[in-house]
């Protein structure tokens, strides 16, 4: 039996915040009471890829148990209720009243406490990062706390009997490596990014979606871990406006100002 654990986050859909609320937002950000709660994009991909791994193990004749683990999801029943129907065996919500925004160490610590309290997982998946406050650091701290090697920005996982082939993005392209379990993987721009959807019949046939709510004692960081260095990623983008009158003008602009410069 293989044990797979997916860590995910339920967040507010910032695309739905009213412009007036952005304008009036104070230090705590805009009013989010009315906006839709959604799965973080990368976390949704992590869940789907965990299900694909489970499917692949089943095809190999190997049983797999999938736990979906989240911390303080808030209003999320409409998301969690279908997990059992798509193949998640156990959904666990760690509950806390503490504000864990911008606290990746403490968040990872709480997740690690839960995971280490049960049978050790073979594969742990997590989304690359999830705004707001998406530092991308939680999976990295979690890997350290669990004592697992970490593969970042995975785009696909293909289990075999004795290892798992992981494709992941690196600066120079896509790297394929074969990982022995156990390991942790962050899911980035994966080949499959949407979580599968059950039919109403499948949802009715599935076991009742017993969502476990577990009180989490958030202590401080487990300590002993500090980033060696921190730098701000350069995310600046340049923008050029073509003021041409027609498609021909725009094409000429594109060729002269973008393509030629890139080639030369």
């Amino acid at each position: 039996m293989k044990r797979i654990c997916v860590c995910f986050k339920v967040v507010d859909d910032f695309d739905e915040v009213l412009p007036s609320d952005w304008d009036e937002a104070g230090g705590d950000g805009p009013d989010l009471a009315y906006v839709r709660r959604i799965l973080g994009d990368f976390d949704e991909a992590a869940l789907e890829n965990a299900l694909l791994v489970k499917d692949a193990y089943r095809a190999l004749g190997i049983g797999a148990d999938l736990t979906a683990l989240t911390l303080a999801p808030g209003y999320a029943d409409h998301i969690l209720r279908n997990f059992a129907a798509v193949g998640v065996d156990r959904t666990v919500c760690l509950e806390t009243q503490e504000d864990l925004r911008f606290s990746p160490e403490r968040t990872a610590s709480a997740l690690a406490d839960f995971i280490l309290g049960g049978p050790p997982p073979d594969i742990v998946l997590a989304g690359l990062m999830t705004p707001p406050g998406g530092s991308g650091a939680v999976p990295l701290f979690l890997a350290e706390y669990l004592g697992l090697p970490c593969v970042t920005e995975a785009i696909s996982l293909t289990p075999a009997r004795d290892c798992v082939a992981v494709e992941h993005r690196v600066d120079s392209g896509i790297c394929r490596r074969e990982m022995l379990t156990a390991f942790l993987c962050t899911i980035g721009n994966a080949r499959r990014s949407y979580l599968r959807v059950p039919t109403l019949r499948e949802a009715l046939r599935a076991p009742a979606p017993a969502i476990e709510h577990v009180e989490s004692k958030i202590a401080g960081s487990r300590g002993g871990l500090k980033p060696l260095s921190v730098r701000r990623e350069d995310r600046r983008r340049d923008c050029l406006f073509s003021e041409g009158a027609d498609a021909s003008d725009h094409a000429a602009f594109l060729y002269e100002r973008v393509i030629k410069e890139a080639l030369l």
Binding site: E16, Y34, V35, R36, R37, I38, Y75, H78
Partner: peptide
């Protein structure tokens, strides 16, 4: 509301 709209809990 849950599926398409989502602005009210």
């Amino acid at each position: 509301v849950d599926h398409n709209y989502g602005s009210v809990k």
